[in-house]
Design a protein around this nucleic acid. Structure first.
Lengths: 394, 394
DNA sequence: ATGATTTGTAAGAGGTAAAAACAAATTTGC
DNA sequence: GCAAATTTGTTTTTACCTCTTACAAATCAT
């Protein structure tokens, strides 16, 4: 993400700004009539016609003579739609064991998706990088047009100013300029945007999920660890080093156990997978993943033991949520991972615990389940890629 | 704060944008040569000349044939300065017992300041409003020109979208549209911006204080209560109801005492004035204010008993700071109120407590004392007023 | 004093969007 | 069916803003 200097200076930048506004609207709202575009942007019919013409020429939009339903009388309007065939981004989700790739059209629909085992070298990102290059090439190969941009979700810290992955402990990466390495090996000149997976999942929820209408949003997802992302003023929080929104390391129990981050009493140690599993009597499982799957399955069939475990977890979960709500004052709080199950099955208890902790009954927190599960990070990577493309649009 | 629709649409809005950019630069950076303005904005000499001409005509800027020191050879540049005499804002700080008013010139200097006892009615804001009107009129009276805007700091919750004071318990206000009431009684058509005092103090630190170069900033001030404000991406956080940044009600001790907010274990109950005073053996003082003054005086002369109290307060203070740092990842943390004294006298202990709690030694928190004390909220109100003026600039 | 350098000024050109006038497509009313 | 009303698209003209270019002014270096 290169820091764009000034928004608008000369007439040309004014046009870029208007083109961007139109494209962003098409991406987020989908097919829109020309007239509606005019109302939204404040531009006149003639200007809209001109701008849309340019978008069509560039292969970013298509105009279709109005589709079916005729609402008023007058001449039926022309409908402008994002052109997914030629205008798409590539979304990549790098995980510890797998790499997911998706092609997402302008407009936000996931056109294709594929997954591969992540063949990574010990501590050395070289193997990962070259596998990424192969996978991306394979994904783009069948299509005539190159992607507009590439977005990559990574389980690690990403410095906002330059997109460098400063630390990804689970991958063994440190200070890796992934975008630069990929740009060199990929022969791709468009924007390559890197982001933390949880932050990108939050972005996906904000743009297309359960937080579409919320300018201020807190997203928390509990799995093995506790990740999250925060949107304020319709923007994803990054902080000065990309650590912002790393809610798992709030200190919710100052006297608690020490955390792998080096801190003490982190939320993650209180409500992470191990804490949850210990509530059903599973301590130090041989395979944490399958143990969790079993627990989740138990929740689905309303196993009383599992529900009781959820109930006992409500207070520590509520402490963290109370903190977040009291500091960020979000319009909505979205819960992912197994917190979704908790909200669904023992939501009443969770809300009660939260209300008791934080007071302010006239400003109740709006807890909801996140819309996307595993797919969130991929969709978020796509959204970040689109934003990157729009930012660099010339 | 009326939500401005689009940034730039037509050529006229482009000019407005450029005028705004120039004015903002002059306000924040002070006198600047024309050439430098061109470098900063990317505009050409001729355009700068034109724009500066308009600013001068409007009484917002003055051009002075270059002052003294000649650096290079060529023709000496013309210097553009904000014109404080005609371009100023009014800053107001409404407090429980006093009302402070200041005249702040474009450029940020406090030109005059005055204070009056706050004569408020019981629960009814009418008396306060009419006193504000009188004080503001008296302040503006001697000057030919009306202020560009008015900014008001209030000890209460201010809804960001419409500037309504939703709750100010210490004043007995609820759902008060202060801006509207003042606009009617004041016969003033310019922007009137209302903000929470702690948030505005944070803004002042960001724009002119100890956080000038920080896009991400956490400000915490402890007095009787614990207030704060948070800046991210160079913007003040407001949240959906203006509660964002109300750090005193983070829950730092889930098992702690109940707080007046209705919550439990709030940071404010852990590190507020009463908690601090109890550390020096003062419980339920007859006059909390004078007891605090005494304690602070003790700190100034390094009274060992007071320093020991500070030391004992380090852990609970550190818990809240660790939370904030881990969630916001700020470039810097600014401490106000008596936390300034704590940092100055027992900073070593505070930093140690913080580091032990939060781990991440490679991302150390940068704790600093805030620059402004009581004056911060007034200067912040002025900054908010200038922002309001720039936003409404036509 | 002369040339180099930097900055200010003025006139003309280019690009962008708005305004106005007109054309096209559809519904409504008869 | 046909005309009027309505809405939208298209074309032309106009206005605005900034840039480019050329030239003038003010200072320093030699």
């Amino acid at each position: 993400m290169t820091a764009s200097t000034v928004q608008g200076r000369d007439p040309a930048s004014l046009r870029r700004h208007n083109l961007r506004t139109l494209l962003r609207h098409l991406h987020l709202q989908g097919a829109t009539s020309r007239v509606r575009l005019g109302e939204v942007t404040g531009l006149t019919r003639s200007t809209i016609a001109d701008l849309v013409g340019e978008l069509a020429e560039r292969g970013l939009a298509v105009e279709t003579g109005s589709s079916r339903p005729q609402s008023g009388r007058g001449r039926p309007p022309m409908i402008v739609s994002p052109r997914e065939e030629t205008a798409y981004v590539l979304a990549v989700s790098v995980d510890v064991d797998t790499i997911g790739i998706g092609r997402v059209g302008l407009g936000g629909t996931l056109l294709e998706e594929s997954e591969a085992r992540h063949e990574r070298g010990p501590g050395d990102p070289a193997a990962s990088v070259s596998q990424l290059v192969r996978l991306i090439h394979a994904e783009v190969e069948p299509f005539e047009h190159a992607p507009l941009a590439v977005g990559i979700a990574v389980p690690g810290l990403v410095r906002a100013e330059d997109g460098v992955v400063t630390r990804a402990p689970n991958l063994g990466w440190r200070e890796l300029n992934l975008a630069e390495r990929l740009r060199d090996e990929l022969r791709f000149t468009g924007p390559i945007v890197i982001g933390n997976e949880a932050r990108l999942a939050a972005l996906a929820e904000h743009r297309r999920g359960a937080g579409r209408d919320c300018a201020d949003l807190v997203y928390v997802s509990a799995g093995v660890g506790v990740g999250g992302g925060i949107v304020t003023h319709d923007r994803l929080l990054t902080g000065s080093t990309g650590y912002a929104g790393e809610v798992g390391h709030m200190i919710t129990n100052p006297g608690g156990r020490s955390c792998h981050c080096g801190g003490r009493g982190c939320w993650e140690t209180e409500i992470g997978a191990d804490a949850l599993l210990s509530q059903v009597g599973v301590v130090a499982p041989t395979n944490r993943h399958t143990a969790l799957e079993e627990l989740f399955a138990g929740a689905e069939r309303s196993d009383p033991e599992v529900l009781e475990a959820f109930r006992r977890m409500c207070p520590p979960v509520a402490v963290g949520l109370a903190n977040l709500v009291n500091v960020f004052d979000p319009r909505r709080v979205l819960l992912g991972g197994w917190l979704r199950l908790m909200l669904r099955h023992t939501g009443e208890e969770l809300r009660t615990a939260l209300d008791q902790l934080r007071g302010l009954p006239e400003l109740p927190a709006d807890l909801r389940t996140a819309r996307f599960g595993e797919q969130g990070r991929l969709l978020g990577a796509a959204e970040a890629a689109v934003s990157g493309f729009l930012a660099e649009l010339r």
